[in-house]
Amino acid sequence: MSATRRLFGAAIAGAFGLLAAGTASAQGSLTVYCSVQEEWCRPMMAAFERATGISVAMTRRSSGETLTQIRAEAQNPRGDVWWGGTGDPHMQAAQENLTQEYRSPMLAQLQPWAVRQAEQTGFRTVGIYAGALGYSYNAPELQRRRITAPRCWADLAKPEFRGEVQVADPNTSGTAYTMLATLVQIMGEDPAFTYLRALHRNVNQYTRSGAAPARAAATGETLVGITFLHDAVAQKVSGAPLELVGPCEGTGYEIGSMSIVRGARNMDNARRFYDWALSAEAQAIGAEAKAYQLPSNRSAPIPPQAPRFENVPLIDYDFARWGNAQERTRLIDRWQREVRAGAR
């Protein structure tokens, strides 16, 4: 009797299992372009698959490459959601009408800066995390040279840092452009360029990738690396002797963003992902993946190692103005002409 019942039960369970499998595939699929580091992309997608049964195909590329891809595919989009990566390319995509407007019901739970990012682009993108700009220095190297620890942007222009500062090239990196725009907003345009010309003498290399200076500082290839602070935290957590500095004059920040590709093939699933990615539980995954940005959901836990904005004086970064393609081209051209071309 009991054996029969067990058999019966197993049969029913099996049938349900089949049914469940059927519904799982009926949930359809989703293609995500991911522009944060691989360690964060993977668990994120896995968690979404577990939560919804939608199967996710994920491609990781830098945000510039992803924007290029979406542009090239504009006639016939392949991706559904573009998740992560610094905000400027997302805003550019919105400006070029490559992404889709969507007002998520989750907007109410977000930090004001994240909502503002959405409002400025007509709800074509939204903030998912934020990270402050700053710099990090290699502590033992600094000690060896007996230089007092820098605290401000101005310190980096001092002669003792000659040839010891590394920063990315705004022509290729959104991080470096954020620095350019930040300094212009803090100091005013002409003084900012005077400062940048002074800093230029201390720069040993303009790297192409935005996060590279943090790595270089971690290995001692350079003394100071200007990056987003969470990039430096990631190096510090893995054991590098780095000290982080939120400059005393104040600093700018990036808003990592998310957009839905216009003409996405799986629009409904894209919206589900969008809503899910703004939830507190989804944003908690970042900390486990060694991503120390500030999550945009107000109730998402903030990783203890994350550089808090309270300690870093943040400027009121005007993304609408400085994210504009024309303004960006103008600033970069001026930088190229007046700073980059100068003698070191």
């Binding site: 510039g64 290029t68 400027d88 550019q92 022509n171 290729t172 990196s173 452009y177 192409r208 970069i332």
Partner: peptide, 13 residues
């Protein structure tokens, strides 16, 4: 070769 890459995929497309 690198200049071409960044003219396509860089911050200034």
């Amino acid at each position: 070769s690198t200049r071409i890459f960044f003219a396509i995929a860089g911050a200034r497309h």
